[in-house]
């Protein structure tokens, strides 16, 4: 008799518990991205002189270090859902040498439902790109000199190419804040001394030299792109997607980037950085993880 009574009570409790779950269904899930670096559809093979870009440069990649920020999911209804609780947290450092950096995960529940893509900023926008935001490595090693605009490299893509002399020449495809330099013929109004530009806010605590620099303006080269992909975030589940950087497209998507033309270093060549960034808009895509 007792057994039957207890069995009855347990059954009722289980039913109540089940009912409660039905009454308050989970409406949130999770999303995570795994970052892949690929060349011509294959995983990047570092330090291997096996690639050829659109300009005909044979090249190799040693390492890629870069920032991605402001990750936002685009709902099928056009709504926007930030991946992180705050914009300060919505910055990720990715490094081909650090496997842990290839994994990006939202730090808050993501509303279940259908989504049509991902929007993000390559690098850091003007608001986020402040010097000393990061004091710890490896992020701090990405600092961009104050003389060149301050803040951080958006990306360091280092490698070598075979130049016109047949030599194995290093290149530093580094993107960040560009500079406009004083040129004869510009009016006085065009000229203002380094540190007095709107980028001065980067340089808290820094006394810029007066009457020293020919830099008259800084250009924020970061860009925001939207990658389309229909996907669903299901209640209580984690949706896993791949964010792919197609490395070759930095050099040959919209325009041909020729290492022989730009040389090994471009931090002080705004035209080269601009071209790189125009190409970079095409350098990413999103796909479902296998």
């Amino acid at each position: 008799m007792h057994k039957i009574t207890w069995a009855g009570i347990i059954s009722i409790l289980l039913i109540i518990s089940a009912c409660q779950k039905t009454d308050e269904p989970a409406t949130f899930g999770q999303i995570a991205f795994e970052v892949h670096h690929e060349v011509d559809g294959e995983n990047l093979n570092t330090d291997a002189l096996i690639y050829t870009n659109g300009a005909g440069n044979r090249y190799m990649v040693t390492e890629i270090h870069w920032f991605i920020s402001n990750l936002t999911l685009i709902g099928a209804d056009g709504s926007h859902t930030e991946m992180m609780e705050s914009s300060e947290e919505n910055i990720f450092y990715i490094d081909t040498d650090i496997e842990e950096s290839w994994h990006i995960k939202a730090n808050k529940p993501i509303p279940a439902g259908r989504y049509s893509g991902l929007r993000f900023t390559f690098g850091l926008d003007k608001t986020l790109n402040k010097s000393h935001r990061f004091v710890n490595p490896p992020e701090s090693f990405m600092f961009w000199p104050t003389y060149l605009g301050g803040g951080y490299h958006y990306m360091k893509l280092n490698g070598k190419w075979i130049n016109t002399l047949g030599k194995n020449e290093p290149f530093n495809f580094h993107l960040g804040i560009g500079q406009e330099y004083y040129e004869a013929g510009k009016t006085n109004e065009d000229f203002y001394v380094f540190g007095r530009s709107d980028n001065y806010e980067h340089c808290e605590g820094y006394l810029p030299p007066e009457n020293l620099s020919p830099v008259i303006a800084f250009i924020h080269n970061n860009f925001t792109i939207e990658l389309p992909l229909d996907f669903e975030v299901k209640s209580g589940q984690t949706t896993q997607l791949d964010l792919v950087m197609q490395v070759e497209k930095w050099f040959n998507s919209r325009e041909l980037y020729d290492h022989d033309q730009w040389g090994g270093a471009i931090m002080q060549q705004q035209a080269a950085m601009e071209m790189g960034c125009r190409n970079g808009v095409e350098a990413f895509h999103l796909r479902r993880s296998n």
Partner: peptide
Amino acid sequence: SEQVDPLMHHVL
């Protein structure tokens, strides 16, 4: 050299 670091972009 083959091993010189890419950051030594002035090497040539």
